[in-house]
Computed example of a mutant assay.
Amino acid sequence: MGTWRDRRIIELFGIEAPIILAPMAGPGTPELAMAVGEAGGLASLPCALSSVEQAHDALTLLRSKTRAPVNVNFFCHTAPQADAARELAWRERLAEYYIEHGIDPEFTSAGAVRRPFDNEFCALVEEFKPEVVSFHFGLPEKLLFDRVKATGAKIIASATTVAEARWLEAHGCDAIIAMGFEAGGHRGTFLNHDMATQVGTFALVPQIADAVSVPVIAAGGVADARGIVAALALGASAVQIGTAYLFCPEAKVPELHRVALRESGDDSTAVTNLFTGRPARGIMNRVMREIGPLSDAAPAFPLASAALAPLKAKAEAAGKGDFTSLWSGQAARLAREMPAGELTRALIAETLARLP
Rank of each mutant, 00 (worst) to 15 (best):
F323N: 08
P310F: 03
A313V: 10
K314P: 00
A315Y: 07
A297T: 11
K314E: 14
L303E: 12
A307I: 11
S328H: 02
A309Y: 06
A298F: 13
A317P: 06
A304N: 03
D322Q: 05
W327H: 04
F323K: 04
W327E: 06
P299D: 08
L308C: 07
A306M: 08
A304S: 14
A315W: 10
A317V: 05
A318M: 14
A298N: 13
D322N: 10
A307P: 11
P299A: 08
G329L: 00
P302C: 06
A307K: 13
W327Q: 01
K312R: 15
L303R: 13
A304H: 02
L308S: 08
L311K: 04
K312M: 14
G329D: 01
L326E: 06
A309C: 01
A317H: 10
L303V: 01
A300M: 09
P302S: 07
P302Q: 04
T324D: 07
A313K: 15
P299S: 13
W327N: 01
E316V: 09
P299F: 06
A309R: 14
W327D: 01
K320N: 13
A306L: 07
A315D: 07
S325Q: 05
L303S: 09
D322H: 11
A318W: 09
A317K: 15
A318C: 10
K312G: 01
L308V: 06
A306T: 06
A300F: 12
L311Q: 11
P299C: 05
F323L: 04
L303A: 13
D322R: 04
A313W: 04
L311V: 09
D322L: 04
A304V: 02
K314S: 07
S305G: 15
A315T: 08
A313F: 05
S325D: 06
A297P: 02
W327G: 09
L303G: 02
